[in-house]
Nucleic acid binder design. Structure first.
Lengths: 109, 109
DNA sequence: AAAATTACCTTGACAGACATAGTATTTTTT
DNA sequence: AAAAAATACTATGTCTGTCAAGGTAATTTT
């Protein structure tokens, strides 16, 4: 269980993009997002709950995603998130930004 | 003059590493560091002065660099910075961290 | 002489990540 | 059946790095 050494400074600014990417493949609820990320990275990166929820709130606020309560008649309530057109555009923009930033960092370190 | 669109969130956590890298090649004074970075990136990234000086102060505080006044008898004073052994170790660590983080981000976006 | 550049420094604001704490339900373990 | 762990959500407040804005002073260019 190697559990994450990823500095939060290095991940900063990528959280929203990571969430948007996941939602691009279909609606998900919050807790599910953390689980997927955990397994996708073989436990190397753990998205903290507080971090995720603040990202979700931010994204919803600006209209990049929207949310709705699942209709689980049994079991705990789940709030699902769905990406909007604006969200897809933001993702594209962020991804390009990442590519550019990556090149620059690579040039400098 | 394309001047920087690099989001400060994406660069966060890399400033110190960038500075250490430059000092690894020889002592430099503050203003010089900004100029080198500017030209190395063809103007795509501009290290803000306040950001740089706070990085320098942080690094000096923790013993990763040290500083001394240049002996310019004529002309303006210059404070030179020099990397320490600890600084070189920190650079190596940061660089590894970057490689790891890069892989993880790439996996997720 | 005025303007621009070189070179340094400080202060305070801001925003994102996260620790911590809390609620409530369901599932697993003892 | 009771206790513990996992699922699932939310709110509050702290910390830290980046940067805008401001300042000083000398030198060089216009």
């Amino acid at each position: 269980m190697v559990e994450s050494n990823i500095s939060s400074d290095l991940i900063r600014g990528h959280i929203d993009t990571i969430i948007l990417k996941l939602l691009g493949d279909g609606d998900k609820y919050g807790y599910e997002i953390t689980r997927i990320i955990h397994s996708k990275t073989n436990g190397e990166f753990e998205l903290k709950e507080a971090t995720m929820y603040s990202g979700l709130k931010r994204l919803e606020h600006e209209g990049s995603i929207l949310s709705y309560w699942g209709d689980e008649t049994q079991g705990g309530r789940r709030r699902y998130y769905s990406i909007t057109k604006k969200g897809r555009q933001l993702f594209d923009k962020n991804k390009k930004n990442w590519e550019l930033t990556k090149k620059i960092i690579e040039k400098l370190i």
